[in-house]
Write a protein that binds this DNA or RNA. Structure first.
Length: 421
DNA sequence: TCTGGGGTCCTAGGACCC
DNA sequence: TCTGGGGTCCTAGGACCC
């Protein structure tokens, strides 16, 4: 059975274009939280020289000059379109592994003539027709090969978005076209080492002596090399694994140096993290909070603190008490803090909870559980923060900047676009 | 004035056990 | 005089992913 990787091109930008086709012919960029830096751009913006990761404030002039459309990231919209994307793929394959918001690995059987091109073209058409998302499909014998094939599908125009490495006559030729930095699993550090050791492309990586690779990359390097040779050794998991930790954090609109503000931020993130836990049907055994100054200031400061809970919980009030209790441990008045967050750790599924020896409470049916459910339902029905904790503060001067956010066109009735005949 | 957020996996080294 | 060897668990840090 072959493995394919279906991946949406410039996903966030494509989502923005799909709800507002009027911007499709213009350069478009999407900014990270706090309108910090570029995290997605459409082909036109790419062509005009906007690159990923650039801070917005540095390129604002350039963007004005090329008359680019700018959007703040709208994750609610992207998550909803992603779900639709995945369900179309699921209906057109044998097994699906959702790999990220815009990518899925899938398994498909090869037809008698081994040719999956017709299937791939059809899938590409359906996705475009229903969601206006252009996708690339790469096919190989395993995940690493599918990744390589997907890269080739995107970068070589003659492949028009689809490439099958499994049936390529000259696999070596194609592996040679893939720069070492573009190989899945090779990050900047390892790429640097590779270049220094004369390994410049995927073919050379496949063919270097295994012992040399193992010494530097460990087992991960071995797995990658095996896959480049055509064996499968990276697990395919169609069942989403339960999360081991859940983190909510952000950079602040402006730096803070008073503990009250830090408490409000920690409270806000803890509440969001608790909601996430309840949605995931998980409970946290320990809570870590952290904060730091900017990387770009001379006096760097970073601190975290952790509290273990007697009983794992997803009750906002319990987690809030734990997190706020730690705040003074990470605060330092001499530093301007620019980032803070909460990590829920050692997560347990609701079914694998153990009661505390001295506790009389039972899970799920408790009053506390009902209260949390009621709050979640109210916020779902009437909008986020209809019911919220006073610990979050009222003014929120530090709140995330989102000056260019688009509508919730697929999840909120009042935001559905109106088409005039 | 401004520089993302949310994850996972692996390894090395220390502490501890018998 | 003499200070083992094999194993597990935990943690911090590094590297990677999108």
């Amino acid at each position: 059975m072959a493995t394919a990787l279906v991946d949406s091109n410039n996903f966030y930008a494509a989502c923005e274009q799909s709800i507002d086709p009027s911007i499709a012919n213009r350069p478009l960029i999407v900014l990270s939280n706090n309108d910090g830096c570029v995290i997605a751009r459409n082909a036109k913006a790419k062509y005009l020289g906007v690159s990923m990761g650039q801070p917005y404030f540095k390129i604002r002039r350039q963007l004005e000059k090329i008359e680019a459309e700018v959007r703040s990231s709208n994750y609610t919209l992207y998550a909803d379109i992603s779900q639709r994307f995945m369900s179309i793929i699921e209906a057109n394959c044998e097994e699906l592994e959702v790999y990220s918001i815009d990518e899925a690995f899938i398994k498909v059987s090869r037809t008698s003539d081994h040719n999956l091109m017709i299937w791939a073209r059809r899938l590409r058409e359906i996705i475009y027709q229903r969601l206006s998302l252009p996708v690339a499909i790469g096919i190989g014998e395993n995940k690493s090969q599918a990744k390589i094939a997907n890269h080739l599908a995107k970068t070589m125009p003659s492949h028009s978005g689809i490439f099958d490495l499994g049936i390529a006559n000259d696999q070596d030729y194609f592996l040679k076209q893939v720069e070492i930095e573009d190989v899945w699993g090779i990050g900047p550090k390892l790429a640097y080492w590779c270049r220094a050791n004369g390994i410049h492309n995927a073919l050379q990586l496949r063919d270097i002596p295994s012992n040399k690779l193992k010494k530097k990359f460990g087992v991960k390097g071995m797995r990658l090399q095996y896959e480049l040779k055509g064996h499968s050794c990276i697990k395919f998991s169609s069942q989403a694994m339960p999360k081991k930790e859940t983190c909510v954090s952000n950079s602040l609109n402006k730096p803070i140096n008073n503990i009250e503000n830090l408490r409000e931020i920690i409270a806000t993130h803890t509440i969001r993290a608790s909601e996430k836990l309840r949605k995931q049907k998980q409970n946290a055994t320990s809570v870590t909070i952290f904060t730091r100054t900017s990387f770009y200031t001379p006096n760097f400061y970073s601190q975290s603190a952790t509290k273990r809970l007697d009983i794992p919980s997803n009750d906002t009030r319990i987690l809030l008490a734990a997190a706020l209790g730690l705040t003074k441990e990470i605060f330092h008045p001499n530093y301007l803090l620019i980032k803070a967050g909460v990590i829920m750790q050692e997560l347990l599924g609701a079914d694998s909870l153990q009661l505390h020896l001295l506790s009389r409470k039972s899970f799920g049916t408790s009053k506390e559980g009902c209260l949390m459910k009621a709050i979640d339902n109210l916020n779902k029905r009437y909008g986020q923060d209809t019911v919220y904790w006073a610990a979050c503060g009222m003014k929120k001067k530090w709140e995330v900047r989102r000056r260019h956010v688009s509508a919730l066109a697929t999840t909120r009735l009042s935001d559905v676009p109106i088409v005039q005949a």
